[in-house]
Nucleic acid binder design. Structure first.
Lengths: 156, 156
DNA sequence: ATTGAAATGTAGGAAAC
DNA sequence: GTTTCCTACATTTCAAT
């Protein structure tokens, strides 16, 4: 079992619940945890204020909003100065198709997670937005056939 | 500009807002969109009922809850029957370290997104949980040095 | 830090347009 | 599909422990 500095069992229980369903009311949470509503209120206020909870967001069904294709693109740059890395990150992060950008260890420099409507849209993105960025040596792209597990909740 | 079958401009505007901050009240949304509260209420009810909104979740700061290390592990199996693929997906999805599991096109079969506290914990996961699964031919792991962009909101 | 209770604000439902 | 009205419920504050 995990213990996290400055979080007690009540905090962790609240985070567990809110990671799964943040539309739970304080009343429902307080019932489940056998605490008062005011306590739950105070704890969640603190968890937000201290940055444990970064955001409360709606997760959409991407297939219903015309983002059926997910690609992972592995990018290798041909220059690894801090300026080049930083400028690549900044430029690529501006594109709405880029959901996530990770700088990586290993055989390439970045993994991008790209969401588009279909292969045509990915192709457009690749040709007109990604490939034109300077300092790119190689891009390898892999496409999602199916997504078996999709969790935003970390185990606690 | 995107149009999505059966969603009008108001629906899309509501989804845009809720993807960023689902703790907005209907009153705040109705003010921003210059619509009545009841309209916003009815629209959000429909968007949930029809499955556009799959969930409302709290996004935690993973570094504060001891999930500092993210790995992408690319797995190649040595058998591609439906049973083997399915059984791998099922087994791997049971592990709490596995946040996401994607079946892929291309040079390998799956990408896993693994969240652990540190390299030791990843190593444990790799040796005792991932590598012991049957039908695994190769696993290549890449580790996140830094995460520049991290969006759960799709552009609409 | 936690509680119950009071005050304020919001959600959710009904009926009319 | 949108509005206004109404009631029930949820959030937030506060005094006390």
């Amino acid at each position: 079992m995990l213990t996290i500095s400055s979080l007690d069992a009540t905090d962790i229980a609240i985070l567990k619940l809110l990671q799964i369903d943040a539309s739970l009311t304080h009343k429902e949470i307080s019932f489940q945890l056998r605490k008062s509503v005011a306590t739950v209120h105070e704890r969640t206020r603190r968890l937000k204020e201290q940055g444990y909870i970064k955001a409360v967001v709606a997760i959409l069904d991407r297939k219903k909003i015309d983002r059926s294709l997910i690609a992972f693109s592995q990018v290798l740059l041909n220059d690894h100065s801090a300026e080049t890395l930083g400028s690549f990150e900044r430029e690529v992060s501006k594109y709405p198709e880029v959901m996530e950008c990770f700088q990586m260890t290993g055989a390439f420099d970045f993994i991008l997670r790209i969401a588009t409507s279909d292969m045509d849209a990915y192709h457009d993105f690749y040709r007109h937005k990604l490939a034109i960025l300077p300092y790119i040596k190689t891009v390898e792209s892999f496409f999602v056939l199916s997504q078996t597990k999709s969790d935003t909740a970390y185990p606690l």
